[in-house]
Simulated scan of single mutants.
Amino acid sequence: MARNVSVSLFWRVCLLNGAVFVLGTLVLVLSPATISAQPLWSEVVAVSIGLLVIVVLNGLLLRSVLRPLDRLTGLMASIDLRSPGLRLDEEGSSPARPLVQGFNAMLERLEAERSASAAVALHAQEAERQRIAQELHDEVGQSLTAVLLGLKQAVGQAPPEMLEGLEEVRETARGSLEEVRRISQRLRPGVLAELGLLDSLSSLASELTARTDLRVVRGFLPGLPNLTAECELVVYRVAQEALTNVARHAEAREVHLGLTRRGGMVVLRVVDDGLGRRGATPGAGIQGMQERAQMVGGRLELRDREGGGTEVLLEVPIDPKGENGDPDPAG
């Protein structure tokens, strides 16, 4: 395709140049102007003016042909694959339209390949999280449970002077077991399959309040339609990442966690009253949220709020089955 576009532009430029020179030749032949054997200054001036007119006309015509290429180059530099759906205008790009069409087709292929790669990577990430969570639960959790049982037996048989130390060790082991369970739950949201999306989000909010002084205000619209299992997981993970970011970086006192409907989309909204992004470059967590949203045909938007704080908006499509009267598992 690139070779065809190049030949087309080549012949266009050649034809323009040829037309200009033919026109200049005809004017010279048909005009009464003549050149003496020893040119006069008036003749030199006339020929120079004619040459200047030919050069200017040729430049203007070439500019009309090549200007779309300059505009196309500038637009290409502004394309960002992390914001899919952007395309160059094909209507106003003639004679560079074949090149624009080829570039837009390339963008579509790149976005499709990037989306497929992101889906594979995220599925692999989820599988790895599941494996680690299972090992934490089965191996570390059971080992700590065995330690607790042993400590309980030791407390019952120990002399009084050792009881205080054993109780401290026992409490440390119990706290470690609870932390392992929390980590396992964060890695593998078992409550998502068992309790549904709304209760899982409520569990996230309760866990955040228990770990921090942050107040979480929940606003879930009742009777939301079904989402696919992939969309529910995306909503859960984005909410989890957004709440974690608020707890770590925002220095907020309150965060609003909401789930509503807008047309054919379910909208997750996480809003805090903290410091905002303050011009910070989005990190891997934000990029991961965006890729998750794109993987299910959704859209993620982050914006600073007036007066401080950050707002995270996620839109994911409703499962068509949820519009046919099927019961909502989240409700």
Results as ranks from 00 to 15, higher is better:
Gly288Ile: 04
Ser42Cys: 08
Gly223Phe: 00
Arg299Lys: 10
Asn226Met: 14
Thr212Cys: 06
Thr209Asp: 10
Pro32Ala: 15
Gly297Arg: 08
Pro39Lys: 02
Gln157Thr: 08
Thr212Leu: 05
Ala46His: 10
Leu16Asn: 11
Ile79Trp: 03
Arg109Ser: 13
Leu30Val: 01
Val44Arg: 13
Ala193Lys: 13
Val235Trp: 03
Glu323Met: 14
Ala330Asn: 09
Glu161Val: 15
Arg292Cys: 05
Val44Tyr: 14
Pro68Gly: 01
Val270Phe: 03
Asp89Asn: 11
Phe10His: 11
Leu75Lys: 08
Ala250Asp: 09
Leu259Thr: 07
Ser117Asn: 09
Thr34Lys: 10
Val56Trp: 09
Ala239Asn: 11
Asp304Asn: 13
Leu268Met: 06
Pro320Ala: 13
Gly264Ala: 14
Leu88Ala: 01
Ala37Lys: 06
Ile318Glu: 04
Ala193Asp: 12
Pro329Phe: 06
Leu86Asp: 00
Glu171Gln: 14
Glu135Asp: 09
Ser202Leu: 10
Glu91Thr: 10
Val296Asn: 06
Val27Arg: 00
Ser36Phe: 12
Leu214Ala: 07
Glu139Pro: 01
Pro317Val: 01
Asp80Cys: 05
Asp199Tyr: 06
Leu313His: 03
Val169Ser: 09
Leu201Arg: 03
Asp328Asn: 15
Leu151Val: 14
Arg87Asn: 01
Leu61Ala: 13
Val312Gly: 01
Leu259Trp: 04
Ala19Asn: 03
Glu323Ala: 13
Ala116Gln: 12
Glu171Leu: 13
Gly274Ile: 05
Ala280Arg: 15
Gly309Gln: 02
Gln153Ile: 12
Arg278Ile: 06
Leu144Phe: 04
Thr260Leu: 01
Ala33Arg: 14
Phe103Cys: 02
Met106Pro: 03
Glu43Tyr: 02
Ser184Asp: 06
Glu230Phe: 02
Ala33Lys: 06
Met295Ser: 12
Arg181Ala: 10
Asn17Pro: 08
Leu144Trp: 04
Arg182Phe: 03
Glu161Thr: 15
Gly175Asp: 11
Val316Thr: 04
Gly307Lys: 08
Asp304Pro: 03
Val169His: 03
Ala127Thr: 15
Gly219Ser: 11
Thr25Pro: 00
Glu241Arg: 10
Thr209Leu: 05
Gly264Lys: 11
Arg131Lys: 12
Asp272Tyr: 04
Phe21Gly: 07
Leu148Pro: 08
Gly92Lys: 05
Arg63Ala: 13
Asp138Met: 07
Pro329Thr: 01
Gly322Ser: 05
Val100Tyr: 03
Val316Leu: 04
Pro160Ser: 14
Lys152Leu: 08
Leu268Asp: 05
Asn4Glu: 11
Gln153Ala: 13
Leu314Lys: 06
Ala46Phe: 14
Pro68Ile: 01
Val65Phe: 05
Arg253Ala: 11
Arg292Phe: 08
Ser176Thr: 15
Leu66Thr: 13
Glu113Tyr: 02
Leu243His: 11
Ala2His: 07
Glu178Thr: 15
Arg188Asp: 09
Glu179Trp: 08
